[in-house]
Every structure is written in C-alpha cells, then in structure tokens.
Design a protein around this nucleic acid. Structure first.
Lengths: 221, 221
DNA sequence: AATTTTACCAAGCAATCGCTTGCTAAAAAT
DNA sequence: ATTTTTAGCAAGCGATTGCTTGGTAAAATT
C-alpha cells in the first residue's frame, strides 16, 4: 500500500518519525523540572534573562524547543522559579548556619561582631560559592518579574534580612558601627552584592579574605 | 492620466505621500543625534537594553522606526554612545569638582578625608542626580557590549577611579581606613553603585545624607 | 540656477522569539 | 488487561526584532 494513497493521518502507519524518544530510565528518572531550573539559572546569569531564549534552555537539558512549556507555563515563571528557589534555600542555609554558631555564646560585644562575620561569610558563599547562580539572577533580573512576583520576592528578601537588623542595631548601640542602621544596611548589602560583578574564583582573594576585608571596612575596634 | 496606467515609479507624479515631513526649523535644529542618545539612555535605564526596541527609541524622539539607523549604524552602537558619553562627562565633572576643592588646602589628615567626601558626593550626584541615566546604564548593561567596546569602557573607568586610589591610600596610611586599599575600593564602589537599585529621590534621604552615611560607615575618627 | 548633502520616511525582509497544537510512547494506576 | 497519566517531540503560528532599501523634500554648497 502506497503512503501517498493513504493521506489520512489517523489511518497512516504509526511508524515513529524523527529522533528516538528516550525512556524514563535513560533520562535517569527524577526531577527534570529542577534540571530546567538549574540550567535556566546558569544561562540567565551568564547571558541575562532577555538574551536567553527558551530554546537555549531546552537545548541545555537535551529537550526540544517546546518541551519546557510542559513543565513551566511561561519563560517568566521559570525565572520566578529560579529566584524563589534560590531565596528559599538561602534563607534555610542562613538559619542553619546561625544555629550552628549560636551554641557557643560569648560576651555580647564580641558576639554581635562575630554574628555579623558569620552572616557576611555566608552571604558571600551564597552569591559566589560553587554552583550558586540563583541569587545573582535574583539580584540582577528584578525588572523581568511581574508586580505580583516582585512583591513575594521582596517578602522573601525581608525574611532573609530580618536576621541582620538586630545585629546591626547591637553594633550601632555599642559604637562599633557609626553609620545609622537603616542606611548602613543598604550600603553594606550594596558592597556585598556588587561583588558578583567583579569576583573571580580563580583569582587572588578567597571568600574568607573578602569577609575579613568587609569587617575591617564596616566595623570598628 | 490614470495612475494605474503609469506603473513606473520614476515617471509617477512626485505627489508627497504619507505624513508631512518636518522642516529643520520645526525640528528646532541642532543635535538630533544627542536627542537619540538621551532618549536611549532613559529607556535603557528604565526597561533595560534588550527590552528596549529601536522603535521605542525612535518614537521617543518623534522619528519613524528606521530613522535612528541614519545616525547610528546599530542599536549596540547607540548603547556604547550612551555609556561613553556618560563616562566622559562624569570624568570631566569630577576633575572640575576636584579643582574647585583643592584650592583651600588643609592639614593632610583632614585633607584626604575631605577629598573622599567630595568624591563620594560627586559620585552620588552622577548616579542619582536629576537626568543622569547614563552612568546607571553603564553600570548595569556591560553584558551587551562587544569585547572591544568593553575594554575601552574599562579604560574610562580606570581613568575615573584613578583619582580615588591615592586618597584611599592616604587614608589607609593614616589609619582612618583599616581595610586594604584594593578590596576597599571594590567594596566601597559596590556600596555606592548599588544605591541605583534602591534610591528614591522623593523619599527621606538626600544625597548629602547618603554621603554622610557612607563616610561614617567607611572612615574612622 | 544647478548640484550635492542632510535628514529623514515608507515599506518591508529575514530572523528570532515565546508559545500552542496534535500527537505518541512509556510508565503508572486501575 | 485496560485505561490514564506523564513527559515529552514535531511542526509551526503570529508577533516582534534589528536593520535595509529606495525614495524625497529641504538645506547647504557651488
């Protein structure tokens, strides 16, 4: 029977066309969704949100161009997933780090100093550590979020920064920080966040060096 | 004579089609090129380079979609013009500000402190002052430059920062700055540059307040 | 007065974009 | 054994993008 004489797609032989589909085992199971988020984070960071096409992301995880839309209803939702996941894991890690620290308490004057040191060191880790593209994306791609998404991200950021404020206030009260807390917070986060622009992991300074420098810059005694 | 019977465009009546063209007087003469740069700067800052179309820019100055390409050979060249012009005028303004300052010299310890104050205040002005979209665009749209453009921008940046280094070194030598100069420079510029993200002109703090806060944060005595 | 240059407009082209539709094979549920 | 769900692929649609081409009125130049 000739295929040309059989134009009905329903009756046509269901011979598999195109590239062979992978079985689930071959895709080594599990979370393709988080593969997409990770690949998107990497590309968004390197090229920016607008300059990254959904096809780029699909290719990066070995999918065809339309397939990411099975997992995420839009490119913007993928961006939001990157940011939200990044912030949530950063908050969790921060709390874990703090609870490991607080068990050995010292005299208060030294304590708040030490807490800030720990917070700054952790923040550098989150931004510049190996395989952490999520937070940089969040810091530099705000504009592409919808107002709704923006406000829930702002909520997460307030949650992350909530731990910092009492520490800064204590340092201000003890005279180790001379700058008023409100502006100090903004300026300090600026100094830290900007490091994403210039830090090079395979260069001279380590994350410990950075933390030390920041403490010397901001804190007295 | 019927137009249909006269298909040759060369022989067709040169009756003006479409919208009336403006005379040079109506365009109030002068530099349309700098109008384009200013409009581009404003849009690039508000929406980002990628999210701004050349049509947006054309509309902003009252041109049709293709006309900007008479003045600039590509969208990327327009971006580069925005950045280069912004940096050149910032460098010029900085030198003027400094030469106004240096005429009344004080004791050295106070002098370098005062110089840093002036530099910081000027930097805030350049980034956050009225109608200055150029520098923010330069700070946040690096990625969209070609390698060539990037390296000449880096040269201009070094020129701008050249004045800061001796000041920071003097402060370090006198103990007013405890953080090593190399990292101090990076962290300080981070703190200042980040203000583009949060500063709101119609809110509480003035540029003088910001400068004061920054000095208190970084400098001792 | 004739020519050349300047500064556009009108129209559209090729490429790329986000996203949709219709389908299917494998896995899971019944 | 049958049905349903999951996780895609193949194809392409409509919109938008940066940019080009061909023309032209006004201004400047000769």
């Amino acid at each position: 029977m000739n295929a040309i004489l059989n134009p009905s797609p329903v009756l046509a032989t269901p011979k598999p066309r195109g590239r062979p589909r992978k079985t689930l085992k071959e895709r080594e199971d599990g979370n393709r969704k988080s593969d997409l988020v990770a690949a998107a984070a990497k590309l968004f960071r390197k090229k920016g949100f607008d300059a990254t096409s959904t096809r780029d992301i699909a290719t990066a995880v070995g999918m065809r161009s339309g397939s990411p839309f099975y997992h995420f209803k839009s490119k913007g939702d993928l961006l939001y997933a990157v940011m939200a996941q990044g912030m949530r894991s950063a908050i969790e890690k921060q709390q874990k780090t703090l609870s490991n620290t607080e068990q050995f308490k010292q005299k208060t004057r030294r304590l708040s100093r030490h807490l800030l040191h720990v917070l700054i060191r952790h923040h550098f880790e989150v931004m510049l550590g190996a395989g952490s593209d999520f937070i940089p994306v969040m810091l530099y791609e705000w504009r592409s979020l919808t107002p709704r998404q923006r406000s829930t991200m702002a909520q997460l950021q307030r949650e992350y920064e909530a731990v910092w404020l009492p520490v800064l206030e204590a340092l201000y009260a003890s005279g180790q920080l001379k700058c008023p807390v409100k502006l100090a917070r903004l300026l300090i986060f600026g100094a830290l966040n900007w490091s994403v622009q210039w830090f090079d992991a395979k260069k001279e300074a380590s994350l410990d060096d950075l933390t030390e420098a920041a403490m010397l810059l901001f804190i007295r005694d």
